[in-house]
């Protein structure tokens, strides 16, 4: 066997430099996806006519097509239709694709989280004179968040790893740098293993953060 451990350890610091761009892609996409997902889920729950059908179409499309296809459509396809989008950077195109794709999944997660908060609490809020909006913001959403956190965390972990797809449109992130090193030295296994370990490490650290947060927000519900 021809495995060069020393080389692998040597390139890890060179790869760590690319963690910020990977996290940037994942975190910004996640924030936008959550915002879109919340709006979509409220449209789904309230069954607002017309907008409900549009939301369902949106979710169906972005869940039904590969994220890589969406990424290529946005980066290479859209500027063809709209020339002013030529200036769209690869990083921004990746963020748009990841946001739209993730938001479709989050919409379903949030919808389930919202309807799992019993209707009686909304009724109680309204009966004490709160408006529907106040009831949703103050009572329903905080509880829905708790219900949604585990599944949303899964989506985020997926997003950290999917951000590696951005290398296909020329974003130099973690995987792109690994590929660069691999082709330079032809030590593919070591380079890609190093990349994999770094992704793994990021998801482990994130899992700790999430576990701490879940424990915190679960406190009111423990006897």
């Amino acid at each position: 066997m021809n495995f060069d451990l020393a080389y692998m350890l040597e390139i890890i610091p060179e790869l760590l430099v690319y963690i910020p761009i990977t996290l940037y892609l994942a975190i910004v996409s996640m924030i936008i996806a959550v915002a879109i997902g919340v709006v979509l889920s409220l449209l789904l729950v309230n069954k607002t006519p017309v907008l409900l059908q549009l939301s369902k179409l949106y979710i169906s499309f972005f869940r039904g097509t590969p994220v890589l296809v969406q990424l290529l459509m946005i980066y290479f396809g859209l500027p063809q239709l709209f020339p002013w989008l030529n200036s769209l950077s690869a990083v921004n195109a990746a963020i748009i694709a990841f946001s739209l794709n993730t938001s479709a999944y989050l919409a379903e997660i949030f919808r389930a989280a919202l309807i799992s908060v019993d209707k009686g609490q909304t009724e109680a809020a309204i009966s004490t004179g709160l408006t529907y909006r106040q009831a949703v913001w103050g009572i329903v959403l905080p509880q829905a968040v708790r219900n949604a956190v585990p599944a949303t965390g899964n989506m985020f972990i997926g997003l950290i790893k999917n951000s590696s797809l951005a290398f296909t449109i020329g974003v130099t992130e973690l995987l792109a740098q690994g590929k660069l090193l691999a082709t330079a030295t032809l030590q593919f296994f070591e380079a890609y293993l190093a990349v994999g370990i770094i992704y793994w490490g990021m998801t482990i650290v994130y899992s700790w953060v999430q576990r701490w947060y879940e424990a915190r927000i679960n406190r009111p519900y423990e006897v």
Binding site: D118, G120, Q121, E123, A124, A125, S127, T128, G129, G138, I139, P142, Q143, R146, P220, Y221
Partner: peptide
Amino acid sequence: SMVFQHYNLFKNK
């Protein structure tokens, strides 16, 4: 104001 059969207290408060 209303008192409910199932109390309907705000569980997050």
